[in-house]
Amino acid sequence: MRNPWFGRGEPGQAAAVRLFCLPYAGGSASAYRGWPALAPARLEVCPLELPGRGGRIGEPPLTRLRPMADAVAGALAPYADRPYAVFGHSMGGLLAFEVTRTLRRRGLPLPVHLFVSAAAAPDLRRTRPPVHRAPDADVLEELRVLGGTPAELLDDEELMQLMLPTVRADFSVLETYEYRPDRPLPVPLTVFGGTDDPLVPVRDLDGWRDQTSAGARLRIVSGGHFYLHPAAAELMAVIAGAAAVQLAAANDDQEIGA
């Protein structure tokens, strides 16, 4: 039976390191469709498909972050049998953080690295007006401001009526999130930000340093909130560099066993 969390196929057995990727609000696993070709050998890119989008468009989307984190942690747990990292962009970055916290509470293996992209530090109060209960026109305008949805799609009324429930649910996830203080994660953290991001300015990223006891670094990428797409190769180079130790160890083991 097909695993709905992995629409492109379940993680394989040949990977030395798995990279689980979480989408932004309104996005799907297809946001990472070009990443496998950018990844080095034995680093397997594993985009997750959340309910209410992609191949799961018929499922009701989740509207709160912690139930979403619980569900994603459960989906990842069977594949934590080897080193893995987690990457998330925008909503996906906050989700990646809470998923890692959930895995720690359950006593499960933690990622070797956490990558948070275009997401403000979790303890910062949200300042943008909530839109998840606003009229459709206001939700669409918010999407235009963020800049991640092509204008031709926003102008496609039939498509937008199909997608708006998921977009609203994702905005609800972000707008109802309440940070709960906890001890820092023992996981190295890389935080990405955009030079011209209108939603998450660089100053809103510094607080992530307080969320790890294993070291944090900040990488600024040219672009707006959705630099994720044009800068994919740049992001992958940083990710591969962070995973290099695990990949090298796996290659040494393979040579010894050859």
Results as ranks from 00 to 15, higher is better:
2 R>L: 14
4 P>I: 01
10 E>Y: 02
13 Q>D: 14
15 A>K: 11
16 A>G: 12
19 L>I: 05
20 F>D: 04
21 C>G: 04
24 Y>E: 03
27 G>N: 13
29 A>C: 07
31 A>Q: 06
32 Y>H: 02
35 W>I: 00
41 A>E: 15
41 A>Y: 04
42 R>I: 07
43 L>I: 05
44 E>G: 10
46 C>A: 07
48 L>W: 00
57 I>C: 08
59 E>L: 02
66 R>V: 11
67 P>D: 12
67 P>F: 13
70 D>R: 14
72 V>W: 04
72 V>S: 06
73 A>Y: 00
75 A>Q: 04
77 A>L: 09
85 A>K: 02
87 F>G: 03
89 H>G: 09
90 S>Q: 12
91 M>F: 06
92 G>Q: 10
94 L>V: 08
96 A>Q: 02
97 F>L: 08
102 T>V: 13
119 A>F: 10
119 A>I: 08
119 A>D: 04
120 A>P: 02
124 L>I: 07
125 R>S: 15
126 R>L: 10
128 R>I: 07
132 H>A: 09
137 A>P: 00
137 A>S: 12
140 L>K: 02
141 E>Y: 05
145 V>W: 14
147 G>E: 04
157 E>A: 13
157 E>N: 07
162 L>C: 06
164 L>N: 10
167 V>N: 01
175 E>D: 14
175 E>N: 11
177 Y>G: 04
178 E>F: 09
179 Y>N: 06
180 R>Y: 05
182 D>E: 14
183 R>Q: 13
183 R>W: 12
184 P>R: 00
188 P>W: 00
190 T>D: 01
192 F>L: 13
195 T>P: 14
197 D>M: 12
198 P>H: 12
200 V>H: 11
206 D>I: 04
206 D>F: 04
207 G>H: 07
208 W>R: 03
211 Q>N: 11
214 A>T: 07
217 R>L: 06
218 L>D: 14
218 L>I: 14
218 L>M: 15
223 G>W: 01
223 G>R: 06
223 G>S: 02
227 Y>V: 05
241 G>A: 14
241 G>Q: 13
242 A>Q: 12
243 A>F: 01
249 A>P: 05
251 N>G: 14
252 D>N: 12
